[in-house]
Design a protein around this nucleic acid. Structure first.
Length: 818
DNA sequence: GCAAGGTC
C-alpha cells in the first residue's frame, strides 16, 4: 500500500520527493510520467509529475463540420470533456490502483485545483482510496512537510470555477469565430480564420484604441519661447577665477557631452523654456517674444537644489520580466518566456510563471550572491554590496504575493559560455543576464540624483531651467539598461547676471500619440486581467497569427483586417473588444469559486450573456462582412504584386488590374459595393512602375509595352503637361519621318533603339553594346542631341545618331568637334 | 479548423 501524490509538473514532483524523502528518493517512469519513490515514516510514497491539464473541453464531433452547423447552435450545445493526454491518464490510473491515500499536490491556484480534479476523476475510476489536497506555495521544507502531514480536502468551488471558464471560453470562441469566418467567406475567398476570443479580442482592442487615437489625432499649433544663456559674455574666453573648480566642471561636462549633447557650445551655456510652456495663441507668444527679443541680460531669481533618489526595481514576476525583456533586450514576450522556461529547466533560474514580486521572509540571498560571483561581470559589484551591508542584504520587495511561486531569480551563477551551452536559444544569455542583474540590483542601495531648478528672468518674463546630476549610482551600477544622461548646469548662484545668447519663438504642432509598445500592451493586459502570467504572450501571438496586428521590434502596428474587425465589433458589440467582456465572465467564475453559485448556473448565465452579444453581432452582419471582406480582398490584392494598383479613393480598399475576356481595366476590390474603375490602354504589356509617382495624382504609373507610360486615372504620360518633370525622356531630336514627334531612346532588356514618340512607326538603330548616354550638347549640323557610348576596353565615342546626318558623311566631323 | 489554460 502506498501514498500517491500528483504534482502539476515534473520539477515540483522532484522537489517534493527530495524534501519528504529526506534526500533519499529514486526516479521511475510510469507511462512516460516521471514518478519519484521514497519511504516516509515507514510508508511507501510515490509523487508523480503531471504536465498541466490532462483533459480539455470540445464539442461532440457531429458539431465540428463548420459548413453544416449554424454557429449559433453551439451556444445551446454543451461541450464535453475529453482526455487529451492518454499516457498521463494511464499513469494516473496505474498509480492510483495500489494507493491507500491519494494526495492532489498541484499548484495552489484555480487551474492547479482543476488539474488536481482531473487526476481525481481518473483515480476514482480505479480506486476508492481517500483523496486529499496538499496546499503549499513554496518548496520550503517546513511548508511542504506541513502540507503533506495534514492534507486538507479538495476545493470543489475552486476547481469548478476553472471548469466554468473553460466551457464559457470555448462556447464564445467557437460560436463567434465560426460566425465571422463563415460570413466573410460568403463574400471574399480566404482560407484564413478570423478568430474572436475573450482574451485575444480585448488584446487587439487595446492596439485598436491606440491606433484610432493616432488616426483621429488633430495636431494643434503651439509656440514655445526658448532662451539660450551663458555665464560668460564670450564662451571662448576661458579665463577662470578658480582653476580647480573649472577643471572639475570640465571633466563632468565632457562626460555628458561626449555621449549626446554636442549642441552645447561651452560648459557655461544652457537653455531655458518660458514659464508658459506650450503657448496655444500665436498673439500671446508674439507679444512675449517682441518684448524680450533684443534683451542681452537675464537675472537668476531662484535656485533650488534637491536630492532625488531612485529606488531599485522590485523583484521580477512574469509580466514585469516580459516587459523588461521587450524594452531592454528587444525580445518578444513569447520568445522570452520560452528562454526563461529553458533556463529554469537547466537549473539556472527559478520558475518563470509567477505573479509574486516579493521574497519570502526566510529567502536566502547570500548563497546565490556568492554563486553569482563566478561571473566576472557581477563579481566586483557583489563584493562591494556584501561589504557595504556587512553580509545582511535586504530586498526591495513589491506588494504582490499570489502565493504561487517566488519571484524570478537566478538559481546558479554561470558565465556566458556555460549558459549558451545549456540553452541554445538566441538571446538566452541576455535573458539570464537580465535576471541576474535584476536580482542583484534589487538588493542594492538607491541611486541618488541632484536636481537643480533655476528660475531666470528676462525683463519681467520667467524662464525655467532644470539640471540633473547623478551623485551616486547605487543599483544603476549593475543595471545599466536605461541610462539617464546627466544634464549639467554651470555653477550659478541666485542673483547672478547671465548673458542671453539667443531667444527663439518656435512654432510647432502637437504630436499624435505614439504607437503602442509591446511592454505597454503587457501592462494593459495585466491591469485589466486579460490572460494570466503564462498566457499573455500567447494572446499577442494569436493576434499576429491571425493577421490582426504585427510587431516591428518593440512597437505594435495594427493591420487592416484587425482594424476593420475591431471597428465592426466596436459598432455591433462594443463590449467584446474591451476588457469588460473578460471581467464579466471572471465575475461569474469568481462566484463559483466562492461557492455562491453552482457551475451550471454560471454556465447558464454566461451563455445568456454570450447569446445577447451573438445577437448583436448577427444583426450587424452586412456591415461586418462588407468591411472585412473588403480588407481581406485588399490584402490579397496587395500581395498580388503584379496587379496591385493602389488605394481606392472612394472606399480605401485596394485597386487592382483586372483582365477579363472583354478587356482590361483597373477596378476596386470592393466591387459590387464600390464600382470605381479606371481605363487602361487596350494593347501592350502592362507593368506597374512602383518607383514612379504620378505628379497629377494618378493612382499608379504603368509601363505600356516598353513604349510609353500610362498614369492610371490620368492618361498617357506623353500627353501630360507634367511629363518633363516626372519622366524626362531621353530624346534625340525631331522624327525625320513625320516631323512631329521626338525620337526617344527606348531601352529594352535585350536591345535599344530610337522610336518616334508620336508613334508614327519610325525607328532607328543604335550601337548594341556599351554604356550609352544622351548628352546635353547638340549636333551642329542637324540639331539632334549627341550620344556618348563607352564600350569595354575601347575609347569613349561621341557621335550623332541621326542616320541622315551620318548619311551625308559628317560622322568624322562630329567626332572631331563635338 | 474555433478559446484559454496548464506545461515539455
Amino acid at each position: 500500500m502506498t501514498v500517491v501524490a500528483f504534482a502539476e509538473k515534473n520539477k515540483a514532483a522532484e522537489e517534493i520527493a527530495k524534501i519528504l524523502g529526506g534526500g533519499n528518493y529514486s526516479r521511475t517512469y510510469v507511462d512516460g510520467a516521471a514518478a519519484y519513490k521514497f519511504k516516509r515514516n515507514g510508508e511507501d510514497w510515490v509523487v508523480a509529475g503531471l504536465s498541466g491539464h490532462i483533459m480539455g473541453y470540445d464539442y461532440p464531433p457531429e458539431y465540428n463540420r463548420w459548413n453544416e452547423v449554424d454557429p449559433g447552435i453551439l451556444l445551446d450545445v454543451e461541450p464535453q470533456k475529453f482526455v487529451t493526454k492518454e499516457n498521463l491518464a494511464g499513469a494516473i490510473e496505474k498509480l492510483s490502483k495500489d494507493a491507500h491515500l491519494i494526495i492532489l499536490a498541484c499548484d495552489y491556484d484555480r487551474e492547479g485545483e482543476n488539474i488536481g480534479f482531473e487526476a481525481k476523476e481518473l483515480a476514482q475510476r480505479v480506486s476508492n482510496a481517500p483523496i486529499k489536497r496538499a496546499r503549499y506555495s513554496s518548496f520550503s521544507k517546513n511548508e511542504i512537510e506541513k502540507a503533506f502531514d495534514a492534507p486538507g480536502e479538495p476545493d470543489t468551488g475552486l476547481a469548478m470555477a476553472a471548469e466554468a471558464r473553460q466551457i464559457l471560453d470555448l462556447k464564445m470562441g467557437a460560436a463567434f469565430t465560426r460566425y465571422v469566418t463563415l460570413s466573410v467567406r460568403e463574400k471574399a475567398f480566404t482560407k484564413e480564420i478570423l478568430s474572436i476570443g475573450p482574451c485575444q479580442t480585448p488584446t487587439c482592442g487595446f492596439v485598436y484604441e491606440r491606433e484610432k487615437s493616432i488616426r483621429e489625432f488633430n495636431p494643434k499649433d503651439f509656440w514655445k519661447i526658448m532662451a539660450d544663456f551663458d555665464t560668460e559674455s564670450n564662451p571662448s574666453d576661458t579665463e577662470v577665477k578658480n582653476p580647480d573648480e573649472k577643471k572639475l566642471k570640465t571633466v563632468k561636462s565632457i562626460k555628458a557631452d561626449s555621449k549626446t549633447d554636442l549642441k552645447t557650445e561651452s560648459e557655461n551655456a544652457f537653455s531655458g523654456v518660458h514659464r508658459s510652456g506650450q503657448i496655444t495663441e500665436k498673439e500671446k507668444a508674439d507679444e512675449i517674444f517682441k518684448k524680450i527679443k533684443g534683451e542681452k541680460k537675464a537675472v537668476v531669481l531662484k535656485k533650488s537644489v534637491k536630492e532625488q533618489s531612485l529606488t531599485p526595481p522590485v523583484p521580477l514576476n512574469t509580466t514585469e520580466f516580459l516587459k523588461r525583456a521587450s524594452s531592454f533586450l528587444n525580445i518578444s514576450p513569447e520568445k522570452s518566456l520560452e528562454i526563461a522556461e529553458q533556463l529554469y529547466l537547466s537549473g539556472l533560474t527559478s520558475y518563470p510563471r509567477t505573479e509574486t514580486n516579493m521574497y519570502a521572509p526566510d529567502f536566502e540571498f547570500v548563497p546565490i550572491l556568492s554563486d553569482l560571483s563566478k561571473n566576472p561581470s557581477y563579481a566586483q559589484t557583489i563584493r562591494q554590496l556584501m561589504a557595504d551591508c556587512s553580509g545582511k542584504v535586504v530586498p526591495k520587495n513589491g506588494t504582490k504575493d499570489a502565493k504561487d511561486h517566488p519571484p524570478i531569480y537566478p538559481i546558479r551563477g554561470a558565465v556566458q559560455a556555460d549558459v549558451e551551452k545549456m540553452v541554445s536559444l538566441p538571446g538566452a544569455y541576455a535573458v539570464y543576464d537580465l535576471i541576474c542583474r535584476h536580482f542583484i540590483a534589487n538588493l542594492m542601495p538607491a541611486a541618488i540624483f541632484e536636481k537643480t531648478r533655476l528660475e531666470i528672468q528676462i525683463r519681467d518674463e520667467l524662464f525655467d531651467v532644470t539640471g540633473s546630476m547623478k551623485k551616486s549610482s547605487g543599483w544603476l551600477l549593475i543595471y545599466d539598461y536605461e541610462t539617464k544622461k546627466d544634464k549639467l548646469l554651470p555653477q550659478i548662484r541666485e542673483g547672478d547676471i547671465l548673458f542671453v545668447k539667443k531667444i527663439q519663438n518656435t512654432a510647432s504642432k502637437t504630436a499624435p500619440p505614439k504607437k503602442l509598445m509591446e511592454s505597454e500592451l503587457l501592462t494593459l493586459m495585466d491591469k485589466n486581467g486579460i490572460g494570466t502570467k503564462a498566457t499573455a504572450p500567447t494572446h499577442i501571438e494569436t493576434n499576429k497569427k491571425r493577421g490582426y496586428f504585427e510587431t516591428s521590434g518593440k512597437t505594435i502596428s495594427i493591420l487592416d483586417t484587425g482594424y476593420m474587425l475591431m471597428e465592426s465589433l466596436d459598432f455591433a458589440v462594443p463590449i467584446l473588444i474591451r476588457p469588460e467582456i473578460r471581467a464579466q465572465i471572471e465575475d461569474l467564475i469568481q462566484q463559483v469559486e466562492d461557492g455562491k453559485i453552482e457551475l451550471n448556473d454560471a454556465v447558464l448565465t454566461g451563455t445568456a450573456l454570450i447569446k445577447k452579444m451573438y445577437g448583436d453581432l448577427t444583426a450587424n452582419k452586412d456591415r461586418l462582412v462588407q468591411k472585412l471582406a473588403g480588407s481581406i480582398k485588399s490584402e490579397a490584392a496587395e500581395n498580388d504584386k503584379k496587379n496591385y494598383a493602389g488605394v481606392c479613393p472612394v472606399c480605401q480598399n485596394a485597386l487592382r488590374l483586372i483582365t477579363t475576356d472583354k478587356g482590361r481595366f483597373v477596378g476596386c476590390v470592393g466591387y459590387p459595393d464600390c464600382a470605381q474603375t479606371y481605363p487602361v490602354p487596350k494593347t501592350g504589356t502592362l507593368t506597374f512602375l512602383r518607383s514612379k509617382k504620378c505628379p497629377k495624382g494618378g493612382i499608379a504609373v504603368m509601363d505600356v509595352g516598353k513604349k510609353y507610360n500610362w498614369a492610371v486615372g490620368v492618361g498617357p504620360c506623353f500627353n501630360c503637361d507634367q511629363k518633363d518633370v516626372c519622366d524626362p525622356p531621353e530624346t534625340a531630336g525631331l522624327c525625320p519621318k513625320c516631323k512631329e514627334g521626338q525620337m526617344v531612346l527606348v531601352r529594352l532588356s535585350d536591345s535599344r533603339f530610337l522610336s518616334c514618340f508620336k508613334r508614327c512607326g519610325h525607328t532607328q538603330s543604335l550601337p548594341k553594346t556599351g554604356r550609352l548616354t544622351v548628352l546635353d550638347k547638340k549636333c551642329e549640323i542637324c540639331g539632334w542631341n549627341l550620344f556618348k557610348n563607352k564600350e569595354q576596353d575601347k575609347e569613349e565615342e561621341t557621335f550623332c545618331a541621326n542616320r541622315r546626318c551620318r548619311a551625308i558623311g559628317l560622322k568624322n566631323e562630329h567626332q572631331k568637334n563635338p
